[in-house]
Every structure is written in C-alpha cells, then in structure tokens.
Design a protein around this nucleic acid. Structure first.
Lengths: 179, 179
DNA sequence: CCCGACTAATCAAAGCTTTGATTAGTTCTG
DNA sequence: CAGAACTAATCAAAGCTTTGATTAGTCGGG
C-alpha cells in the first residue's frame, strides 16, 4: 500500500521530473508518462520564465507581474473597458478591479465612467503609465530574447506552433476557461 | 507620442497575441517578435492548462493547485523536510510553510520535528492524504491526456524536448531562480 | 565551553486570486 | 412604462505569494 521510499536527499529541482514519472508509473501503472512529462515540463518552464522576468525586470521597476500584464493590455488597446482587459489578459474581472486599484493609486492608470454605459469603467494610461510600460516592455523583450536564444529560430517557430496547436485544440474537449 | 488607437472592441482572447505583436512592433521597432510571441504563447498555454486542471480536477476535491503540488511531492518522496519540498516544487519556503498549515488542518499532512535536527520539520501524508493524492492524480492524468491528445506523440516529444532545452540552457545567462 | 556564523521554519505586511454576493445601471418584454 | 432579466463593477472572505525580519537550533573555532 505504502510505497517503498528511496532516500529523497539526492533529489534536486532538475532530477525531480524524472523521479516523479518513474515513481508514479510504478504506483499507478495506467498513467500516461508522456502526457505527464509534457504538463510538468510546460508548467515548470512557464514558472521559471515568469519568476525570472518578474524579479529581474518588473519588480525593480515597482511593477508586479500581473500589474505589468494589465498595463500592457491597456497600452496596446488604448481606452478600454475593464471587462475587456479581463478578457484579453485572461484574468477574472474581480482581479482586474483589484489590480487597477493599485495601479491607479500608483498613478499609472486612470479610471473614468464610460459615456454611454453608466456601469462600465474606461481605463487609460497616465503619462507616467505610458513611460513605465514602454520602459518595462523594452527591458522585458531584451530578457525574452535571452530565453528564446536558447533555441534556434526554427526551434522557436516550432515551439510556438506546437503550443498554439495545443491551446487552440483545447476547445475541442471543453477545457474550462474563465468566463 | 501617443499611438493611434484602433477600436479594441473586436479583439478577443484569441486574436490578442497577433494584435499585441503587430502594435508593439510599430511602437518599438527593435522588438524581437519571435521571442515576444514565444513568451506570450508559453505563458498563455501554461495558464490555460493550470486553470483547467485546477477547476475540473482539484477544486472539486477540495484541493488548490499549490496544495496539489505539495501533496504530490510528499507522496513521491515519502518523509521529507519542508525545505526539500520547497526546492522540488519550486516554491519559496515561506509558501510551503503556509500551505502545509492548511493541508495539516485539513488532515492530509502530518508535521513532526526531525529526529536529528531540532530546526527541521519532516512532512508526511496521512492515510487520507494518500487517498486524496492518488485519486486526484489519476483524474489529473486523465485530463493531461486530453490536453496532450491535441498533439501527435512525435509532436509531444518534440515539445517536451524544446521546453527542456530552453529551461536547462536558461542557466547560461543566469536566469533568477528561487534560492 | 562559548561565541559567531549559519540554517530551518515561521511570522508579518502587502499584494494578488478565487468564488460568490451585492450594488447599480441597462435592456428586453409584455 | 413597469418589472424581470441581464450585465459591469466592486466587495467580502479565504487562501496563496513575496520579501524581509524573527526565532530557534546547529556547528565549528578559539
């Protein structure tokens, strides 16, 4: 019932995925190892990337990662409804609402009632918001290039295509999305 | 200075990446579009995957995504120090400490002082913890297979290889990692 | 033996996220 | 035109995350 335990002391961040797959397959023989490795690897890659970008680029500029994302969306769309920002950034409306609170307090975003709909709020950047996002995005892209540079251009193109294929096909089995 | 704004109302979650790249390249001509697309696509894929797994598999079983990850690591390693769990799961020690608090309260994890080091805490699963993680992981893997099934086996293998290459090479430019 | 350096865990404060309820404003329908 | 149905935003409560400080225990050198 209880699995035999090997000594975990030799494990580290890098060897953990292999260990996890081997051991899980022993416990649960029906497991699809390839799918398991795919999800573990994808999750880990995204986490590392975000942690690195946030700590080297955004926090030093006083932005959080979600704050950067919201600012980025508003920068690219101009005046937008908060609802749209939530949809485009993949966040919940409540999260955007809270986030805009701090961005407004920090003088990066302005909020005003929409002219033809008393419920909606239109968001826009302040001058300082614009300066912040262009500076942050430039540094962000430099760092992105370091990450992408681990792969050849063809490899990058392939990776993008595979990720896009996986996400667009996820609608076929009704993957849950934020509404 | 201020960019001309197109009407953002026609934009949606799927078209946003293309729009973002086109518009950013217009504003900041030096941007590397491929690197930009890579990071946007990777981040989005990982988010969709986690959101789907968490809402269809884990929340219905009373687990959060981070809670699942911690339980998973303890399941695979047996008795471990909290520090090791943090290292293997890629979380901070403080996060693990807080998370273990709720997992212990929910009767899934037990905490005991390490025999030969009065500072360390050893973590283990309760019987209920073991039942919970095996049930959750089985459902988790079924769902993973749906995601992976969007790609052929060769494509899955390629995707895994590219992600691994990118993450292992990230050490070459000193990507920040949690310590 | 004891002091200083180190290390494990936890705490504290601030911020972000989630779901579900609430408030306010709009639109459809009879 | 009034009420019902709907929609945008916000609030509330609970949980997770981060960094930096604190507490407690270990260990090596003088």
């Amino acid at each position: 019932m209880t699995q035999e335990q090997t000594d975990p002391r030799h494990l580290d961040f890098w060897s953990f995925v292999d260990h996890a797959i081997t051991r899980t397959a022993r416990e649960l023989p029906d497991v699809d190892r390839r799918a398991m490795r795919l999800v573990l690897t994808l999750h880990r890659a995204a986490n590392m990337l975000v942690y690195d970008l946030e700590s080297t680029v955004h926090r030093p500029r006083g932005l959080s990662w979600p704050g950067f994302r919201v600012l980025f969306v508003i920068w690219l769309t101009g005046q937008v409804e908060a609802k749209k920002v939530a949809e485009l950034s993949g966040m919940s409306r409540a999260a955007v609402s809270a986030l805009v609170g701090t961005l407004e307090r920090d003088g990066l975003v302005v909020k005003e009632r929409a002219p033809h709909d008393g419920r909606a709020v239109h968001l826009g950047l302040t001058e300082r918001g614009r300066e912040t996002i262009t500076d942050a995005f430039s540094a962000h892209n430099v760092r992105e290039q370091e990450w992408a540079g681990a792969l050849s251009e063809d490899e990058q193109t392939t990776l993008i295509a595979l990720l896009e294929k996986m996400t667009t096909r996820s609608t076929r089995f009704d993957a849950r999305r934020r509404t």
